[in-house]
Design a protein around this nucleic acid. Sequence first.
DNA 1: CCTCCTTACGGAAACGTTTCCATGGCTGGA
DNA 2: TCCAGCCATGGAAACGTTTCCGTAAGGAGG
Lengths: 331, 331
Amino acid sequence: MATIKDVAARAGVALGTASRVLSGSSQTSADSRARVLAAVAELGYIANGPARSLRRARTDVLGLLVSDIRNPFFSELAHAAEQEARRHGYTVLLANANEDAEQADEYLRTFAAQRIDGLLFSPQSTVSPQVAATLASGLPVVFLNRTIEGVGAPLYGTDNAQGVQQVLAWLQRRGHRDVAFIGGPDSISTGAERRAAYLAGRQAHGISTDDRLLDAGDFLAGGAAEAMSRILDRGVTFTAVFGANGLTTLGAVRALRDRLGAEQAARIEVVSFDDLDWFEFASPPISAVRNDASSIGRLGVRGLVDLIAGRAALGQRVPTTFADRSAQDVR
Amino acid sequence: MATIKDVAARAGVALGTASRVLSGSSQTSADSRARVLAAVAELGYIANGPARSLRRARTDVLGLLVSDIRNPFFSELAHAAEQEARRHGYTVLLANANEDAEQADEYLRTFAAQRIDGLLFSPQSTVSPQVAATLASGLPVVFLNRTIEGVGAPLYGTDNAQGVQQVLAWLQRRGHRDVAFIGGPDSISTGAERRAAYLAGRQAHGISTDDRLLDAGDFLAGGAAEAMSRILDRGVTFTAVFGANGLTTLGAVRALRDRLGAEQAARIEVVSFDDLDWFEFASPPISAVRNDASSIGRLGVRGLVDLIAGRAALGQRVPTTFADRSAQDVR
DNA sequence: CCTCCTTACGGAAACGTTTCCATGGCTGGA
DNA sequence: TCCAGCCATGGAAACGTTTCCGTAAGGAGG
């Protein structure tokens, strides 16, 4: 592979001059510039990233650590983050924690070894020593959608309160009073926030909530199905189900079908925090809060870039919209 | 940030000895080993990856270039690839081509600059100069699911012929003779293979195919909906639709609904290459070929690791399974 | 007891950049 | 015409590793 030394030799200039043409682009004559660029083209020279990173003490790489890239929310977010990062001259190194604190730790170590310039982080519930070390190391960090209490990094995430308000308003319009709520882990900030907003909102509307209609899963389909099942076991009646994230809703719908049969299950209206593209095809269609994963990814990268540049980043709550699919078959 | 020099000083050994303990771990006494490891722990030393990469002329990074990470097939594949790579001591750098040849080129350049050790590649249709240069550079490459004609890199991908056979068998069981086929771009190898297998299979079954029932989109929902629309415009009757990939099926279903209304659309059975997790909830449920993205990702990484180690890699066709969801409501 | 071999270690070179410093030539003003 | 100043350039140091080479110490064998 050609090095800058080869380029310089071919262009008939000193190594330093070649470097100035390629990076600094200052202090160079038009003549040497032309000759260096010609040499680059002839040799197909591509600068050695590691060498450059070593010398400049920066890598132009951002780390993105999410819990599961297979979750459509995160894959959309990752896509948007990557596009935005590219526009700022950064490459994104993606890591999957697999909802597993140990893997998250391992990746944080890998990121540290790679000397990433900044971290986009959607944390687990627990604060491990490695997480603490990362946050203490002075590395620029922004949180995406989930945060850790008491850490001074900005959060870019869904406006959970607004989304839950939209659900509550919809429930009221549709005349649902007895609603089963399947939440997520309280240890994840979004789980706690959505549950709190739901209960507070009901109270504000002056509706009491039967505790037997509340349960929580793990934000995955399996745990949500079990939670739904437990509610059914309690023998309380309800006319609607509210799933606190996309996979939770999927699990709930599955459990309803399995337990009640398709016909009975179709009598229960379902509403979801997170919109999945098949909700329009469910019967009846599932209404949902759409949270804007793309904007979150984009804004998160912008915030991180600001942080790296030494500017302040304040974090932002991204507004939600509501996809009301119930109008098509008013009861 | 602590360097290996600091570690050596604190351990009271020479820099070279510290390095030997940390990497080679050969030719070191138990005493200095213990002291170096203690110093590492005390200082929280994490080796500088770029410096190491520069010296060793390898990065332990694999590049993964897919067309769109939001496609569930690729996000599952990426997840599996990442897990497998980690087990072999590699990190994965993920790039999204966005089904755009120019972006793919740009990422290939970035990969080259990063000096990745190997490339997992799900190529676009066109062979750009940059792609050619990459393939010619001697970088170990494996193709994932899509290939480029005449390139000597192994392919790890779905067994398209088998999957299509499963669809044809199902169509026959269900008694469908007039089937609309929505394919993908012929320029993408999977598009061409699935179409060819479908037509050949029908012929083998002795069923003629009305050309007006064949059309193709772009493997995205939008293009597929347009293709479906064109078929409807031709006024030919059909009792089933076969979508050549997941998003194609989504687009087709959408177009059927929009054009015919939900009720009429439900009379047409849909079958898909690629299974999406909502197909079970569609009405009627959509049967589908499941292709094993995880295995493809895993096997691809293993093949690439073999290639990097100088061993041969042969490529592999991963078998499909078929999710028959029609039994639930036999007509 | 001496010599030879092994083994651990210290020192230094090398990887490919960027950037600092010094030098030489040229321009412009007095 | 001379001098001050600027600009482009060459040369070299530095980034943090790994690895090569030489050497000293220690053990074994004669």
